[in-house]
Design a binder for these strands. Structure first.
Length: 206
DNA sequence: TGAATGATCACG
DNA sequence: GTGATCATTCAT
């Protein structure tokens, strides 16, 4: 029996949440049906000190959601074309979140293929912008809770062994000084559904 | 390797 | 108001 993750799952250190989200299932329920997939890649963004975190600029209209309660959705548009989906973590007024970067498609594949304009399962949700397009996630849900948005993350009882988890530096944040080298990206080592097939620098697991 | 494409924020 | 920048993707 799947168990929906509740706010308390996210009210914890962001690195723990990012690691433990691997192997959980992201589910979107719409009138058209159910879309789901297994999370295989995440990144942690932690506090105003983290120069890669949007909140490093402080509290602004855009970053307000990062200061909200754990389990809130932080969705923004990047490069004028793509959306990125985050789940807020830790305590209220501490700006942190986990970016969902890649998902292995499970249910609703036909709709994902239609939205993405490709048949390739490996090209449906293997990147933060791709998965938002496949699952129909837009800034309309920014600041809302998962329940309010008709989506959730659930535990289907699959155990992701520590040996199967790899870490690397985060992608696309070269501007962030030393923070660009922190191994705050987590992914399922043997998954072929991550955004980049091989990891880079950083540790092994942990 | 570079174009696409628009929200956001620091300026003043 | 203006301009630089951007947690990406895709075609060249």
């Amino acid at each position: 029996m799947p168990r929906k993750l509740t706010a308390c799952f996210f009210e914890r250190p962001t690195l723990e949440v990012a690691r433990e989200l691997l192997g959980k299932y992201f589910v979107v329920k719409r009138s058209g049906g159910i879309l789901s997939g297994k999370i295989v890649e995440t990144e942690a963004y932690i506090g105003e000190d983290d120069l890669a975190c949007h909140a490093s600029k402080g509290r602004t209209p855009r970053t307000e959601t990062l200061y909200a309660k754990a389990g809130s959705l932080y969705v923004y548009m990047v490069y004028g074309m793509h959306h990125c989906l985050n789940v807020v973590t830790e305590r209220v007024n501490f700006p942190s979140a986990v970016l969902i970067r890649a998902i292995e498609p499970c249910e609703g594949i036909a709709l994902m293929q239609k939205r993405r304009g490709t048949k390739s399962l490996h090209n449906l949700a293997s990147g933060p912008g791709k998965l938002c397009e496949a699952f129909g996630i837009t800034v309309k849900v920014n600041g809302k809770t998962m329940r309010e948005s008709g989506l959730w993350i659930e535990d289907r009882g699959e155990r992701t062994r520590p040996a199967d988890i790899a870490q690397s530096s985060r992608i696309g944040v070269d501007y962030a000084g030393k923070y660009s080298t922190y191994p705050w990206r987590f992914y399922v080592k043997k998954s072929s559904f991550i955004s980049r097939i091989s990891g880079r620098k950083g540790g092994d697991n942990g």
